[in-house]
């Protein structure tokens, strides 16, 4: 992967479900999972997203996306948080998007 982006999850009971949710939310992207015991890297090329809707399907209807932070010890790229989703984007892509938005 040239520009891997995505969360680094700390070891917790929900890791497998979170990975499944990320895979569901990024159908066209290869999701790489690197397991180092205490932490698991989940990454895709340039941009990946996870939504509250999908997370709720795996983690229960009361899951709040803000709680994702309790599992994320680090991440690669820029993390863009909204009240429905988190997107990890490479710095290059983020810059290009911002530029396009202002011009």
């Amino acid at each position: 992967m040239k520009n891997p982006v995505g969360p680094v999850l700390s070891m917790c009971d929900e890791v497998e479900q979170v990975i499944a949710a990320i895979e569901d939310d990024n159908p066209g992207t290869d999701i790489e999972v690197i397991d180092r015991g205490a932490y698991v890297r989940v990454q895709g090329e340039n941009e990946i997203t996870v939504t509250q809707q999908t997370l709720r399907r795996y983690l229960g209807a009361d899951f709040e996306i803000r709680s994702f932070e309790t599992m994320m010890t680090a991440f690669n790229g820029r993390a863009i948080t909204t009240s429905d989703a988190i997107t990890w984007q490479s710095v290059g892509l983020r810059k290009a998007e911002k530029k396009a938005a202002t011009s």
Binding site: E69, M71, M72, T73, A74, F75, R78
Partner: peptide, 12 residues
């Protein structure tokens, strides 16, 4: 790990 979840945010 818990500490670093805060760092991941405010380091931004």
């Amino acid at each position: 790990s818990s500490i670093q979840t805060d760092e991941a945010r405010h380091s931004q």
